[in-house]
Amino acid sequence: MVAVEVVKVADELKNTYDVVVIGGGAAGLSGALMLARSRRSVVVIDAGAPRNAPASGVHGLLARDGIPPAELVARGRAEVRGYGGQVVSGEVDAVTREESTREESGGFQVALADGRTVRARRLLLATGLVDELPDIPGLRSRWGRDVLHCPYCHGWEVRDQAIGVVGSGPLSVHQALLFRQWSDDVTFFPHTLPSPSGEEAEQLAARGIRVVDGEVASLEIVEDRLVGVRLGDGGVVEREALAVAPRMVAHAGLLARLGLRPVEHPSGGGEHIPSDATGRTEVSGVWVAGNVTDLAAQVGSAAAAGATAAAHINADLIAEETRQAVAARARGEMPFSPELESRVCEAVLGSRRHGL
């Protein structure tokens, strides 16, 4: 095995980067790692509010199943920094476009809430999403513990328990059918939705899922454990875990000045930023990865999407740099050479980019 010499860089914002990654979860850090290994100058700006922070562990992630979310982020940050990338704490307030030239795409000015600004040639947005939960007392405080949403993330941990599913949107019956895979004791609470009828009612009955009508008023908690669901009529249905499908809304308001706004997801489960398979958006120079574009992405798929987007960002930068080199050669300037590239990059980025 060939040893890799890594370079550590102080986490102070410079004026300009090849790529600014906004969001330091699995998608953002994976993208930054790929870019740093591609010898790109890259900084991750992270507000430090991960969606999965309440969860005890990340599940379904090969070779890291059950790892605490904070530990996964810490490992990812260390790997990015080890290759010369930066991770800086901060909240991005707005992003604006710079003018483009014939040979160079317009860059971006990234403004942080604390007044700092930085320039980026390309952007990778990996800010995730916001879970909008039903307004049921006690629900938010149990989120990620015994109030869940994804059976693939948490189903094993609540297997064979008494599970309740609260109706909250168009995917709620589907969610109840999913959780039936992990327990034969599943109760569906339509809550404020109409009681299931027709094909949905038949499906629930066929799988032995009980339907209890009536609005959910609150959760019953004893010694920091969910023990039941209290209905509006005062009745309590004993439950050990509760599933709810939140409305998921992309956290992307900071891109409004670029004309890039969330739109309704085809699933009806919330709003996302549309992109192609590589993460490229309709705004030139902006890529997205993770839950900001794919509402259902788990940690592993979000990380993969970040790496994919990063590879295409690097290819896009190479294409631009090649156009610049061709234009310079046509003007009779010094032809391209590794030595020339090294001198130019040292002037802009410092000698670390070439390992000197």
Rank of each mutant, 00 (worst) to 15 (best):
residue 190 P to C: 03
residue 243 A to K: 00
residue 189 F to T: 10
residue 288 V to P: 09
residue 133 L to A: 07
residue 35 L to V: 02
residue 29 L to V: 09
residue 135 D to H: 05
residue 216 V to P: 11
residue 316 D to P: 02
residue 296 A to H: 14
residue 116 R to W: 04
residue 93 D to H: 11
residue 243 A to E: 00
residue 82 G to I: 01
residue 323 R to C: 06
residue 306 G to L: 06
residue 334 M to P: 08
residue 205 A to H: 11
residue 346 E to L: 12
residue 338 P to K: 10
residue 145 R to H: 15
residue 121 R to A: 06
residue 99 E to M: 08
residue 262 P to I: 02
residue 247 R to Y: 00
residue 189 F to S: 01
residue 282 E to S: 13
residue 162 A to L: 15
residue 270 G to P: 01
residue 240 E to V: 04
residue 231 L to K: 09
residue 153 C to A: 12
residue 105 S to P: 08
residue 230 R to W: 09
residue 7 V to C: 05
residue 147 V to H: 06
residue 346 E to T: 13
residue 17 Y to M: 01
residue 140 R to F: 06
residue 282 E to N: 15
residue 252 A to L: 02
residue 247 R to N: 00
residue 62 L to G: 09
residue 311 A to T: 06
residue 97 R to I: 05
residue 104 E to K: 14
residue 285 G to A: 01
residue 152 Y to Q: 03
residue 257 R to C: 03
residue 196 P to Y: 11
residue 43 V to G: 01
residue 149 H to Y: 09
residue 327 A to F: 05
residue 99 E to Y: 00
residue 83 Y to M: 09
residue 81 R to V: 02
residue 129 L to K: 08
residue 253 G to T: 08
residue 199 E to S: 10
residue 182 W to P: 02
residue 278 T to N: 11
residue 97 R to K: 09
residue 223 E to M: 12
residue 323 R to Y: 09
residue 169 G to L: 13
residue 14 K to N: 08
residue 309 A to L: 08
residue 83 Y to R: 01
residue 228 G to Q: 14
residue 27 A to M: 07
residue 16 T to A: 05
residue 57 G to S: 03
residue 331 R to C: 07
residue 16 T to L: 11
residue 83 Y to N: 04
residue 115 G to F: 07
residue 275 S to Y: 15
residue 126 A to Q: 10
residue 288 V to Q: 08
residue 185 D to Q: 15
residue 57 G to V: 04
residue 231 L to M: 15
residue 170 P to V: 15
residue 247 R to C: 00
residue 273 I to W: 12
residue 226 L to I: 14
residue 286 V to A: 10
residue 288 V to I: 05
residue 254 L to P: 03
residue 40 R to K: 12
residue 202 E to L: 10
residue 207 R to G: 02
residue 64 R to S: 14
residue 37 R to Y: 10
residue 238 E to S: 14
residue 315 A to Q: 09
residue 101 T to P: 08
residue 23 G to K: 02
residue 303 A to Q: 01
residue 204 L to D: 15
residue 356 L to F: 15
residue 158 V to L: 07
residue 139 L to V: 00
residue 31 G to Q: 00
residue 270 G to A: 03
residue 161 Q to N: 13
residue 296 A to S: 13
residue 22 I to H: 05
residue 204 L to W: 09
residue 258 L to T: 07
residue 343 R to T: 09
residue 286 V to N: 03
residue 74 A to F: 06
residue 274 P to K: 15
residue 53 A to M: 13
residue 155 G to Q: 02
residue 175 Q to W: 06
residue 148 L to W: 00
residue 223 E to K: 15
residue 258 L to N: 02
residue 217 A to Q: 14
residue 287 W to P: 03
residue 138 G to H: 09
residue 342 S to I: 11
residue 132 E to Q: 07
residue 314 N to E: 14
residue 253 G to Q: 01
residue 137 P to L: 04
residue 214 G to E: 07
residue 36 A to I: 00
residue 78 A to Y: 02
residue 9 V to G: 02
residue 182 W to Y: 08
residue 53 A to G: 02
residue 186 V to S: 04
residue 233 D to G: 03
residue 314 N to G: 11
residue 124 L to F: 07
residue 271 E to S: 14
residue 32 A to H: 04
residue 151 P to V: 03
residue 80 V to S: 04
